[in-house]
């Protein structure tokens, strides 16, 4: 009994593809669904905002692709455990809210030392969060090492509010903005951060080319 060559080869091919299919079944199976549309009512409480923020953080915002919560070691992006506490003092002249907002809207404006630029603005595609979704994410981030303080009506500089100390922005954009004067060492800070912002700008420019 000799199996014809054609059949042998067919069996071999089916066997090999079958084996690879089997390998494919052995790994964890996960479907990735496109983000769902999130409706934020006008009268949500801060606690609800935190919950929405968590959903956005884990889903549509794809934050977890890069960021971790409570991990240490060789990380590519900053860990967000205790971010609420760090945000308040990471950048002189920035309140916690302003810092968080800036990291979401203009991630390249300030890079945490030890890391490289690489985050995309959360309000633009492909992430493309709405302003209120970003607000919810900020609310959630505030609970990581702190308590959420923002409400659905909170405004910050990107949504028409005011930034408390705007030195870097003022220096880079050469906009005569009096807001920077409150700072203790306005000139030093402004120049230092302007350089940084410029460097970030360069990087962004390089990316475009």
């Amino acid at each position: 009994m000799k199996i014809p060559i054609t059949l042998q080869i067919a069996l071999l091919a089916v066997g090999m593809t079958g084996f690879y299919t089997l390998v494919g079944q052995a790994v964890p199976q996960k479907e990735v669904h496109p983000p769902e549309v999130i409706e934020v009512a006008a009268n949500v409480t801060t606690a609800e905002l935190v919950e929405i923020g968590r959903t956005v953080f884990e889903g549509k915002g794809i934050c977890q692709t890069c960021h971790t919560i409570g991990k240490s070691g060789a990380l590519r992006f900053p860990d967000l455990q205790g971010i609420a506490e760090r945000a308040a003092r990471q950048r002189p002249g920035y309140t916690q809210l302003d810092y968080l907002a800036e990291s979401l809207y203009e991630p390249d404006a300030f890079i945490v030392p030890g890391f490289v630029a690489g985050m995309q603005p959360a309000n633009r595609p492909p992430i493309g969060l709405s302003d209120v979704e970003i607000l919810a994410v900020i609310a959630y981030l505030q609970t990581l090492g702190g308590a959420a303080t923002v409400t659905v009506d909170t405004k910050f500089v990107y949504t028409g509010g005011a930034r408390e100390q705007d030195a870097a922005e003022a220096a880079t954009e050469a906009v005569a903005d009096a807001a920077g004067s409150e700072d203790e060492e306005p000139s030093d800070l402004a120049s230092g951060e302007a350089a940084e912002a410029e460097a970030a700008g360069d990087r962004a420019g390089g990316d475009d080319g």
Binding site: Q25, P28, K30, V32
Partner: peptide, 18 residues
């Protein structure tokens, strides 16, 4: 629009190969 599981993808790949 969703991304299927790897198991599903490998089945499609195998069918295509055959």
């Amino acid at each position: 629009a969703f991304t299927p599981t790897l198991g599903y993808a490998t089945k499609v790949v195998s069918s295509t190969v055959l």
